[in-house]
């Protein structure tokens, strides 16, 4: 093997209070530059699967909802396939982007995604992972983006290999959304406190 000269990953810096200008300019009133904000629509009329709404807030250590966070999600389609060239197991639903981006609402701090329930995807050893949505959260005061996952309360999560890695079993609950409507789930993220969300170094 030829030796490689490795480089170091560029250091992360906070997204700051004005992340909207670059990532969701229409949301902050800068219109006419990009036709629409990236990640604002994940579905169209032909998307296969069970339509769901995912909403929630990101809370700081004082229990206050962040008003300046940006939340991104990435998930498999209804069959458990990712719409990505790295997906070698089959062709994902062409009517599903798998990617959502939402700036939290400036008064309430709420994020909302209209999506579908993802299918299960395998873990590295072939065991199935329970249906989940990958989250990435940035905001002023967050120095490096936080990775976490949403799991569903109405699925069997007991054999999930990732949840199985969490030593304090009580903390598993922080990754399980609450069913708050017919097809609606609420996922609140807590950056600190007794029920601090599990974040991943992944």
């Amino acid at each position: 093997m030829k030796p490689l000269d490795y480089l170091k990953e560029s250091p992360s810096q906070t997204a700051g209070p004005y992340v909207h200008i670059g990532c969701t300019p229409n949301f902050c009133g800068i219109e006419g530059v990009f036709a629409e904000d990236l990640g604002s629509t994940m579905l169209n009329g032909q998307t296969k699967g069970e339509r769901i709404t995912v909403r929630g807030r990101v809370f700081d250590g004082t229990g206050t909802a962040l008003k300046d966070a940006m939340v991104e999600i990435w998930q498999a389609d209804a069959e458990g396939l990712y719409p990505s060239p790295q997906e070698k197991r089959g062709q994902a639903d062409e009517n599903f982007t798998g990617f959502g981006r939402c700036p939290v609402e400036q008064e309430t701090g709420e994020f909302v995604f209209e999506t579908i329930k993802p299918g299960t995807v395998p873990f590295n050893d072939g065991r199935p992972q329970a249906s989940h949505i990958t989250f990435w959260i940035v905001a002023r005061g967050i120095n490096i983006g936080l990775h976490t996952r949403l799991y569903f309360p109405d699925e069997d999560n007991s054999a999930d290999p990732v949840l199985g890695r969490i030593e304090l079993k009580k903390r598993v609950e922080t990754l399980i959304a609450e069913k708050t409507g017919d097809a609606e789930y609420t996922f609140n993220v807590r950056l600190q406190g007794h029920n601090e969300t599990v974040f991943f170094d992944i």
Binding site: D60, G61, T62, L66, W74, Q75, A76, Y82, Q86, E87, V121, P122, F123, N124, Q129, H132, T134, A139, R140, G141, I142, N143, L146, R149, V162, R165, I166, R171, L191, Q192, E196, T197, V198, F199, F200, D201, I202
Partner: peptide, 16 residues
């Protein structure tokens, strides 16, 4: 008040 206090859960990346 915006920094997690628990250690991150380190894990090899999966297909997700």
């Amino acid at each position: 008040k915006r920094s997690p206090t628990h250690a991150l859960l380190s894990m090899d990346s999966s297909i997700s």
